[in-house]
Amino acid sequence: MSLDADLLLLLVIGIDLFIGSTSRLGARIRACALQGLVLAALPLAIQGTGVLAEGERIVHTVLAVGATLILKAVVIPIFLLRAMRRSGVRREADPEHSLHLSLLLCGVLVGLSFWIGAVMLPPQAGSSPLGVPAGLATMLIGLFLTISGRTELTQVIGYMVLENGVFVIGQRLLGEFPLVVELGVLLDVLVAVMLMAILVVFTNRQHEQGADVAAETVGGGAP
């Protein structure tokens, strides 16, 4: 059981819970970015346990880490933050107490994923026992956020979290890093985020702002 990977995965769960318990969109996006950062560090922690010696894998790892870092931790969050500022929505419009409920529900989802992890996918020797539960929990919470989101932006954030979960679980289940899977995942994210962001802008144009602002966002966001 590798210590670093354990702590990182714990951090992933912690960030999930934080995202589930705050209503401020800026905080959610930043937490998402932090999660991307943690995910980028994850292959290092795992590869560090012994496979690092093989030359080809180093290239693989570096590539994967770099791509993850740039996309999940930098590009997409910046894009989302910009969309948030343009749309003028800062907060999820929810009453206070439903946040208690949302946090509790996230806790239940974490418990559920631990249970599923224990029953269905027992950890293989040498890998962190937290991998599958952390991935599942992130996926479930992402799904929950996507479902419960009232605005397009929160749905996009939920979707991002969901993709992060897929990332963790894919990595844990396959044990290594096939580039195809990873690229597929990233592509998924990219396309989804683009689509949804355009949707955000589109509705904004319809509802609130003038067409020129929206056009500028589309121009700047989707080169």
Binding site: L10, L17, S21, L103, L104, G107, G111, F114, L130
Partner: peptide
């Protein structure tokens, strides 16, 4: 409640 959830995750981690 956050503290409760954190502690609950801790117990689950211990289990796993």
């Amino acid at each position: 409640i956050g503290a409760c959830v954190v502690a609950a995750v801790g117990v689950l981690v211990l289990f796993t």
